[in-house]
Design a binder for these strands. Structure first.
Length: 194
DNA sequence: CCCTTTGAAACAG
DNA sequence: CTGTTTCAAAGGG
């Protein structure tokens, strides 16, 4: 039996709804982080939860799910400006992120490993990642990040274009709330985005 | 399987 | 700005 849970919230100084999806396979008491998703409006998040038939966890019951509580609190602190590396922090706490299933190829693993070790506020470019993983497949790097199921934890928002442009976010390359969110996340880390 | 298409990119002109 | 280059993955025979 597989149970899928979710929790959503609006961070204090960020105009977005964050939905975190978890799964729990019955005999296994450990909860795995499935996905982090962003929505422009609360109604969009609610519609998604309905459509996907996700079980919604309220704050009162949150205490029962240790992993979910921890993930939510860490994201809260990070968005509040705390200098934490979400990926390393969660790894140390032994929270299951399902990295092997989410990034099955060598190439995608190399890309996200490089990203996971970036410091808070440290930005990089698609070509810089390429240089570090010994590949010139710049566009393929973008494709890996576009499909990143763990934004914030795998900080794909820290990857901009070499020419200084902001680059895409959530598959969006034109002006959109998604790209604004990328800028907001960078500014949260004191990165100037013009 | 192979063969074609597709990219949150980069580069040269 | 416009082509051209690039290569991993996904998609379609």
């Amino acid at each position: 039996m597989v149970l899928i849970f979710s929790i959503y919230f609006k961070p204090d100084h960020l105009n977005v709804i964050i939905l975190i999806i978890f799964e729990c396979r019955e005999p296994n008491p450990k909860t795995k982080v499935n996905e982090i998703k962003f929505f422009e409006k609360e109604t969009d998040a609610i519609n998604f939860i309905r459509k996907e038939n996700l079980e919604l966890i309220n704050n009162k019951n949150l205490i029962e799910y240790k992993e979910i509580h921890v993930v939510k609190e860490l994201i809260h602190s990070y968005l509040g400006g705390a200098d934490i590396n979400l990926y390393n922090e969660l790894k140390e706490l032994n929270i299951d992120l399902g990295i092997e299933e989410k990034f099955p190829t060598r190439f995608s693993r190399d890309v996200i490993n490089y990203l996971a070790n970036l410091k808070n506020g440290e930005i990089t470019t698609y070509s810089e990642i390429g240089n570090n993983i010994n590949s010139k497949a710049y566009r393929a790097i973008g494709t890996v990040l576009k499909r990143n199921p763990l934004p914030l934890i795998i900080p794909c928002h820290r990857v901009i274009r070499k020419d200084g442009k902001i680059g895409g976010f959530m598959g969006e390359i034109r002006s959109s709330w998604q790209q604004q969110l990328k800028k907001d996340l960078l500014e949260l880390e004191q990165v100037k985005t013009n």
